[in-house]
Design a protein around this nucleic acid. Sequence first.
DNA 1: ACGGGGCATCGAACCGGTTCGACCAAGGAG
DNA 2: CTCCTTGGTCGAACCGGTTCGATGCCCCGT
Lengths: 340, 340
Amino acid sequence: MNIGEIARRAGVSRSTVSYALSGKRPVSDDTRRKIQQVIDELGYRPNASARALANGRTNAIGLVFPPAGNHYTGMQLDFIGSVVEAAAAYDYDVLLSPSGVDSDHSFQRLLGERRVDGAILMEIRLEDDRVAHLADLGFPSVAIGRTAHPEGGWWVGLDHTGLAAACVHHLADLGHTRVAFVNRPEQLLRAGYESAHRGLDGFTKAAAERSLTVRTYCCGDDAASGQECLERVLHDDPATTALVTLNEAALGGLYRGLAQAGRHVPRDFSVTGVVASRWAETVTPQLTAADVPAAEMGRRAVDLLVERLDHPEASPRHHLLAPPISLRASTGPAGTGTTP
Amino acid sequence: MNIGEIARRAGVSRSTVSYALSGKRPVSDDTRRKIQQVIDELGYRPNASARALANGRTNAIGLVFPPAGNHYTGMQLDFIGSVVEAAAAYDYDVLLSPSGVDSDHSFQRLLGERRVDGAILMEIRLEDDRVAHLADLGFPSVAIGRTAHPEGGWWVGLDHTGLAAACVHHLADLGHTRVAFVNRPEQLLRAGYESAHRGLDGFTKAAAERSLTVRTYCCGDDAASGQECLERVLHDDPATTALVTLNEAALGGLYRGLAQAGRHVPRDFSVTGVVASRWAETVTPQLTAADVPAAEMGRRAVDLLVERLDHPEASPRHHLLAPPISLRASTGPAGTGTTP
DNA sequence: ACGGGGCATCGAACCGGTTCGACCAAGGAG
DNA sequence: CTCCTTGGTCGAACCGGTTCGATGCCCCGT
């Protein structure tokens, strides 16, 4: 069951078995065959802990994903799936860590106890102590998202500012003048979540450029909050004819609120935002949105991390993605702007 | 940085440090304090690989989740989240493995290379070679779902048969007589997925009991497939007035198909099924459904696994859950049964 | 005064790999 | 015919913990 047993049965030394397996030194064809045969017979696989101890690499990466509020969003699911898949292609295992902050128990385990060779961080904040901490330590990591000071870092990010602005311009081009912005929960905005801040910025600036009348809202990550938020929107300004949202989980609730207020989408009211395509397509009418390329981002994050692990001295790299808006069926020309 | 360094600085032997940390032998208060002080100063944490090598436990569990088709469903997300959280409470890390079958590369790594102490299996099939394989090996594992021969196994399952039957009875009580069943993709049904089979069984038997006219369909795990499937339903039998579904991901598409066919839910058409509440609430009208208690199932699976790890000789245990149907807004009395 | 028991500590072996230096035999160059 | 390389193999040390057996010491009972 261990390398000594294999060596004994093959009539060679333990080091020879090791070299036969790793190929780091030449081994004659005869002995290699003999060893391989014994290994196949016994179904031997080298112990991962022992190997990790000996050569200092665990062949595992950590995926740090703090829960957004108290449950996970669909986008996180997409990230997790693509990261696991990409990592598997490089023969890396993925360890999940539900860590919130730098002082977090599970975060410490991953790093301090050397369970992983590198980490991928999700749900980045503009001032993120995890990112700062890892940078100080020189610990190999890649962020999905970027902080306020992204220079010299490894990350793959989304141009939330540009994307939100694109949504505004799309609506302004259609003649909308009174537009609402539905953001992630207030708690996340206050915590400094990148997407919430940059999205809000992009929205506000573009709206000013186009001289739109706007109101901005925070909204819980669930359908009930979405519905309640939409009621607030129409209560505050019944003449609102369109909204932009970053809040995937609230989308169904927003639609329900519109239906109950008797606003038909897209005839009376236009909806757009930044949402992964697979969720944009579950609502009716399908959402015109900037599709978050979650699968691609996860894959690229792994590519970057592996590159960093293989070349410790490589200089920092990043990818900033700005997917175009996919026209579906939830936006249309502005109507009268009052009750239908 | 390692235990020898701590020992040196504290002026004791390595074993004393180890005992001070583990408490497995008495250590005087003086030395314990001294050791603790050095540890705090240096921020020392014991190396996980070394520890795992020495005592044969990695303190990690594997979560084996084959992708359903080519992407992940919302329910899988809920399982992953709850498993990670529950495992963290027991100080276990979670390793994700996208393994499909027994011969899978990543599955072999997890088990063969002893990366984990135990495993939680998702997406169980009636005849599941992974479950059989692990049972043969005596490897500690817990299944989320149950095979055709669940006796003597460790699992937490859902009574899909009973749940689907409950949906049928609910619809029959409302006077529906022509009902469709929308299952998971055909590929999964053919592969023997438990939920697809048991759900179909429960539906069929209950429908026979109540003398309903039924048709059953398989449907891809996405909105477009749902829409297309609903068109097939109404094409095959326009007099259909209700459907039962297990397919969470297709739900949005089913609703869209109904809207485009001019069927109002629940006035002209009732929809129900087995779906996690958080997804049932995103559609409008909200889905009357048997709520899959994904969070509870994940937690219980971890509880069971930890129990099994702590007491290797414990006799097998399981939980079979049968949540009641939550009445929301998507079902109503049968109407005329023809076009509105 | 002496023996025994418990406490605190130490040294060494071990877990299962990897890797370095040494060794020997065979082959090629001078 | 040497000498030097190179290919193939081995033994030993090492990675960083845990654990067992031994030892020294102090205190107590008799």
